[in-house]
């Protein structure tokens, strides 16, 4: 086996450190066998070992996060893939935006309890949520901002989960080409 093949297997193994040992060993053994038959042409065709390792890792992390119903881990995995996939960028941006909107609406609810004068809806010009200076114009919603923002926070949070999960399932079925 040539030094190039050995170097490839070593770098692939290093890139897969986050995987369980038995899975990592099986992958490296299979790629090593592939390169033993393909030779150095296979080294070039497989692409950089770090990129190949990253594809294995992203698929594994996404599968794990989907199985564990862990939205934070799933979102991070999708965002990690966004640098190589337009679909991942769209899904990551959409679900991250929905989670951030949910948190923002929830924050408005909390602020309405703590500093009600600084929270509300004002028109001409439009201002919604928390403000640093209380406008002189009349506030429109009053206490109704609490159920409204609570409902919007729940709706955004509830929508973000399926967007992220369905998007991740679609992404995982679309291989990233290392070459």
């Amino acid at each position: 086996m040539t030094a190039a093949v050995e170097d490839y297997a070593r770098r692939l193994d290093a890139g897969l450190k986050a995987l369980p040992a038995d899975e990592r060993e099986r992958i490296v053994l299979e790629i090593r066998g592939h390169l033993a038959e393909r030779g150095e042409a296979g080294v070039a065709a497989l692409g950089a070992p770090e990129a190949l390792a990253r594809t294995f890792l992203q698929d594994w992390r996404m599968t794990q996060a989907l199985a564990q119903s862990n939205p934070a881990a799933l979102l991070l995995t999708v965002l990690d893939r966004a640098t190589r996939s337009f679909g991942a960028a769209v899904i990551g941006f959409a679900s991250l935006s929905l989670y951030l909107f949910a948190l923002a609406f929830a924050l408005v609810v909390v602020l309405e309890f703590l500093t009600p004068d600084y929270v509300g809806l004002w028109l001409h010009p439009f201002e919604f949520g928390g403000v640093t200076e209380v406008p002189t114009r009349p506030e429109i919603l009053g206490w109704k901002i609490i159920p409204l923002c609570a409902a919007l926070a729940v709706a955004c949070w509830a929508l973000a989960g399926p967007v992220l999960r369905r998007g991740a399932v679609r992404l995982i079925k679309r291989p990233v080409f290392a070459k």
Partner: peptide, 27 residues
């Protein structure tokens, strides 16, 4: 095995690349 799959896919043009095949098989 992997190389046979690539050869089979290669007979009809490069339908599956080497860098994509092994992650796909693992998945």
């Amino acid at each position: 095995y992997g190389l046979e799959i690539l050869e089979g896919a290669g007979e009809a043009g490069e339908l599956v690349t080497e860098g994509a095949l092994y992650p796909l098989l693992t998945r």
